[in-house]
Design a binder for these strands. Structure first.
Lengths: 235, 235
DNA sequence: AAATTCATTGAACGTTCGTTGAATATTAGC
DNA sequence: GCTAATATTCAACGAACGTTCAATGAATTT
């Protein structure tokens, strides 16, 4: 009994926390059950007892915070109100989706930071991205709906593609891999939440608006004729 | 000698191809050397003979196509010419960076598709993203330079953050994990390169322009006074 | 054709892997 | 305080892991 450190919290929770941190650092296959149980100060057999198997542990880690995130995203999306012109503000819609992450990525949220780093890997993995579909897409559908309402006349496919670009940027940004820091010679810091907060929604809202404008160049009613091939940028 | 299938190509190349495909599907830690050598029809010892160890194989897989991509990206970036107003077209700059991927992601490029799926995982991994830094950032710096030239008066940090958003969207998009297909009920197809080609540059160019406009609202010369906190979107 | 280098094979190394079952400790219900 | 359910420990299983080495085959050089 040298390495065991049984705190007051139950072993089941310690396992979830340790798994979250280690999965985020080295990926699902890069961490063994023994790595996790050792870090949690628990016995190897407890993973299979509490979660069935290693994959069940990953699933539980994944859904634990997804429920919290989904609830708040829905609340914020429902709270987005039309402006004086009767239109929904695109940046406000994007922020309803993004700010719940900002709030939890601060100093106190070490567990949340690990969770976001894990999400980034899951989102970009062919074999694990089904977890994104299962645990997030119901709320994403709601997000798509509100985005569509904020983009009258836009082709629905533009909204889906725009969301796809957004989620790629979002998950990488909150993963905080440190690449931006190195690339910019420490001019930019992944951990600088203010920098993300002031830039993300303007960038994405402008992207969505550009797609909508491209599909229906002038008026929202000229939608049926926008079926031709788009002209593309250059070359 | 039942499972060995020695084609005309050398075992070293067969190993690279098999490793590329399997790493892309299941991740670096999710694939064993025996998985790779079996798929390549080669002996287990050949990985260590040709590449030193498993990590050396990953490095070689990664740099093999990076060199090709870097060369073409540099050529295209150098070929971007100012328009009649003397300014560089933002979409043209983005396309110089993105189109080399489009060209290789078509029907014939099965190996390239695997490679892009691998890049997405490496880019989002804390322990592997150093490979991105090492093999891509020299060319990314050139990309940043040209972007900055196309965004006169913009804060350099905006350009870096914009690139960060862009690379997150780009790597996820070309990973083709299938999540967009499921999310949209098959309305959008990850493999539809035309859909990517017509949307990516407009979306990103508008994002960059919005960041630049936010930092220097009117004229490029009003740069030194833009040090205050930005107003953010909503909430 | 002999010598030398390079590529491949087969077998084995010690270690770690995920998982299991029986035994023990702890908690909760009555 | 006894009982029953839950939680944790301990030891072990067979399989798979990355790596190594001596032996063999093939290709190149002299």
């Amino acid at each position: 009994m040298a390495t065991k450190k049984k705190t007051g919290r139950p072993a089941k929770e310690r396992l979830l926390d340790a798994a979250e941190r280690l999965f985020a650092q080295r990926g699902y296959h890069g961490v063994s059950i023994r790595d996790i149980t050792e870090a949690a100060g628990a016995d190897v057999a407890l993973v299979n007892y509490h979660f069935g198997n290693k994959r069940g542990l990953l699933t539980r880690v994944f859904e634990r915070r997804a429920e919290i995130l989904n609830r708040e995203r829905l609340e914020r999306l429902a709270a987005v109100r039309p402006g004086p012109d009767g239109r929904l503000d695109l940046e406000a819609v994007v922020n309803a989706f993004m700010e719940p992450l900002i709030l939890r990525s601060g100093r106190g949220g070490r567990g949340w930071k690990s969770y976001f780093a894990l999400i980034a890997q899951v989102n970009n993995s062919p074999e694990l991205s089904v977890l994104m579909t299962r645990h997030f897409d119901p709320v994403v559908h709601k997000f798509i709906d509100v985005l569509t309402a904020a983009l009258p006349g836009a082709d629905l496919r533009d909204v889906y593609w725009g969301y796809h670009f957004l989620t790629g940027a979002l998950t990488l940004t909150f993963a905080e891999t440190g690449r931006l820091d190195k690339l910019s010679g420490r001019l930019c810091r992944s951990s600088d939440l203010d920098s993300v907060h002031t830039r993300f929604a303007p960038f994405m809202a402008a992207g969505f608006a550009a797609l909508a404008a491209r599909g229906a160049p002038v008026a929202p009613l000229a939608k049926a004729r926008a079926r031709r091939k788009a002209p593309a940028g250059a070359n």
